[in-house]
Design a protein around this nucleic acid. Structure first.
Lengths: 249, 249
DNA sequence: CGAGTACTTGACACGTTTCAACATCCGTGG
DNA sequence: CCACGGATGTTGAAACGTGTCAAGTACTCG
């Protein structure tokens, strides 16, 4: 029996526990999927591309970014295992952003044509994929709020809260800790703060005792106080209740 | 013969010129739609709601916002005629944001159940609606860039560039000018800048000679220079070439 | 006429950026 | 083995953009 694809896994996971029928399962199993390993800092898609297939991340980190005139790269999203970062390419003619690996990545490719035909035949699977793009949009909405209305300390804290919940939901956290290989420069591009200020803000977070971020390792020591500081409310992530972080230490 | 709904019009417009088949047209015509007038500053949907229908704006302005702990309202999107601001409610269980009218609005309501059944029977219409949500997401991506990487002057200019292109595409602009009933407080919530700073920045924009914003009226006097100042590139709006602003004055 | 809303202005405070120097770590090649 | 360069992290001091507060104007509407 063939191994279940990350693609199928993502649909189940992110669709809020959709129970697949036998024919839906079969359709997913028959979906041609190719499996690839990609090095860090490689382009998965570039602005202006018209991709013919879409990516599911099996492992590693990737980012969605745009370049501003100053040449500075600014991140608009970060993607972890299970995410489908260029699903928008399925319906939009051209990519309006760059998608790059941030670490070595294992990815699956699925042809747009196959997905379209799958969606046409199985509306519930189409809805599940559609929902994934809507959940991604919800995250962007929250990022807009985070960027425009929270000072450095809360903003950075908010980012870490989001990442731990998402990593936990992807099965990549142990307790309230996870591997998160981002440099302070990455955090700068993610939060819109200067790298120097990220450094100082990290020190404040560390000294608060609520969390640490060292050696690519995020550890949250006081979830309650950190979420309060960050004004973090995980409802925008649209995850199922039972999969949420419940630690109250 | 019944009047063509804004819903149907939006699907055609935003789907990049989808040519509807006879049966698709019929399906759209048979879609039950109710028509309502809503006063300014009224809630269309609130955080936590589980809406059973979705809105198409026929006229007026609406916003998507979230409240931060300070009680400050921050906008994550602004919607004009033809937009479907709560389409995410079709697949997400609960609203993660508030949607409110900003002016008096004329709206259409369509039941989720009817849309779902329409989508199941007509995949191309499903794709068109899906694409609308993806185009909205693309705007949010650009807002993230705008908020995190551009100083007040470019940021505000960028917002005005976007609005003129969108209004033009909705048929609501005359030349390079449009009615845009937003207060400086609204602009503050839209750009993440203080109202006082909006005021000063507007003065700079005015004195630059590139544009004016007075009496709820936006006029762009030098499109080329303003877009350059704003780093505005309309490709993220995913409109069809021919509908783009072509004035180079 | 008074109240309310939107807009305007000035002075000052504060958060964040910038720049420049330095520390640390790590893989690579001599 | 050590020397080196490059990427990453750290620190200090100064400059700058933006926020805040407070006062005042202009306009509309009842």
């Amino acid at each position: 029996m063939s191994q279940v694809s990350q693609f199928r896994h993502s649909i189940k996971l992110l669709s809020g526990g959709l129970v697949l029928t036998a024919t839906e399962k079969q359709a997913l199993d028959e979906l041609p999927i190719s499996h690839l390993f990609i090095r860090a800092n490689a382009d998965l898609a570039q602005t202006g591309d018209q991709p013919s297939r879409c990516i599911t991340i099996v492992s590693g980190l990737a980012t969605t970014s745009k370049i501003t005139r100053g040449g500075k790269r600014q991140f608009a999203a970060i993607h972890i295992a299970g995410d489908m970062p260029d699903l928008m390419g399925l319906h939009l003619e051209k990519m309006d952003c760059d998608i790059r690996t941030s670490t070595d990545c294992e990815v699956e490719y699925t042809e747009h044509e196959d997905i379209r035909s799958l969606c046409a035949r199985h509306p519930r699977l189409a809805f599940a994929l559609w929902k994934i793009t809507l959940a991604d949009a919800a995250i962007m909405r929250e990022w807009i709020i985070n960027l425009s209305s929270r000072p450095a300390l809360s903003r950075l804290a908010h980012f870490f809260c989001e990442m731990l919940v998402r990593m936990e939901s992807a099965g990549l956290a142990r307790g309230s800790s996870c591997h998160l290989p981002l440099t302070q420069d990455d955090l700068s591009d993610l939060t819109g703060l200067s790298a120097v200020h990220i450094n100082r803000t990290l020190q404040v977070l560390r000294s608060s005792g609520f969390m640490t971020f060292n050696d690519s390792h995020l550890t949250i020591l006081n979830w309650k106080k950190l979420t309060h500081l960050a004004e973090f409310d995980d409802r925008y992530l649209h995850m199922r209740r039972e999969s949420r972080l419940m630690n109250v230490n």
